[in-house]
Simulated assay, not measured.
Amino acid sequence: MSNLAITDAIAPSTAAKPFLTRLGAGFVNRLVIIVPYVWLLFFFLIPFVIVFKISLSQTAIAMPPYTPVLDFRDGISGFFAGFRNLNFDNYVWLTQDALYFKAYITSVVIAAISTVLTLLVGYPIAYGMARAPATIRPTLLMLVILPFWTSFLIRVYAWIGILKPEGLLNQLLLSLHIINQPLVILNTYTAIFIGIVYSYLPFMVLPLYSSLEKMDYSLIEAAKDLGCPPTSAFWKITFPLSLPGVIAGCLLVFIPAVGEFVIPDLLGGSSTLMIGKTLWNEFFANRDWPVSSAVAVILLLLLTVPIMLFQQAQAKAQEQGK
Rank of each mutant, 00 (worst) to 15 (best):
A132L: 01
A25N: 15
F79G: 02
A223R: 01
P12M: 04
A191R: 03
G227H: 12
T14D: 10
I179A: 14
I194T: 13
A285E: 12
L40Y: 11
I76V: 06
V197P: 11
M129P: 03
A98S: 13
L117T: 12
N85C: 10
A81F: 08
W39Y: 14
V258A: 08
L186K: 05
A294D: 07
V49P: 00
F101W: 12
L201G: 01
M63E: 07
W149K: 13
K17I: 12
A98W: 05
S292P: 04
A62N: 14
M129A: 03
S293Q: 07
L143M: 15
S107C: 02
T150E: 04
Q312V: 00
V49E: 01
T278D: 07
Y66K: 03
N90S: 02
A11H: 06
T231D: 01
E221S: 08
T118G: 07
F52Q: 08
I33T: 15
S242C: 03
L201R: 04
F148H: 15
L251V: 05
L226T: 11
L40H: 10
R287K: 12
L273N: 12
G268Y: 03
T190W: 14
S210C: 05
L309Y: 08
I237R: 13
I54Y: 10
V28Y: 15
I54C: 04
A223H: 06
P147V: 14
Y123H: 02
N281T: 09
H177C: 09
L120V: 12
F52S: 14
D265P: 00
D216S: 15
N29T: 13
P133A: 00
I247H: 02
G75M: 04
V116I: 15
V35N: 06
Q311R: 00
L45N: 06
I136W: 11
V262I: 14
G227P: 06
L251G: 01
L86W: 04
G259H: 07
I46P: 10
S211P: 05
P306R: 01
R287H: 07
P229D: 12
W39L: 12
I192Y: 11
V258G: 10
V121G: 02
R73I: 02
R22E: 08
A296N: 04
Q181C: 11
L186W: 13
L168F: 10
D89P: 00
T304V: 08
P133W: 01
L243E: 08
L206K: 13
V121H: 05
Y217R: 15
L56H: 03
S57M: 09
I307S: 02
A98I: 05
V262G: 01
V246C: 02
I154P: 05
D97H: 11
A11D: 09
F152P: 06
K277D: 13
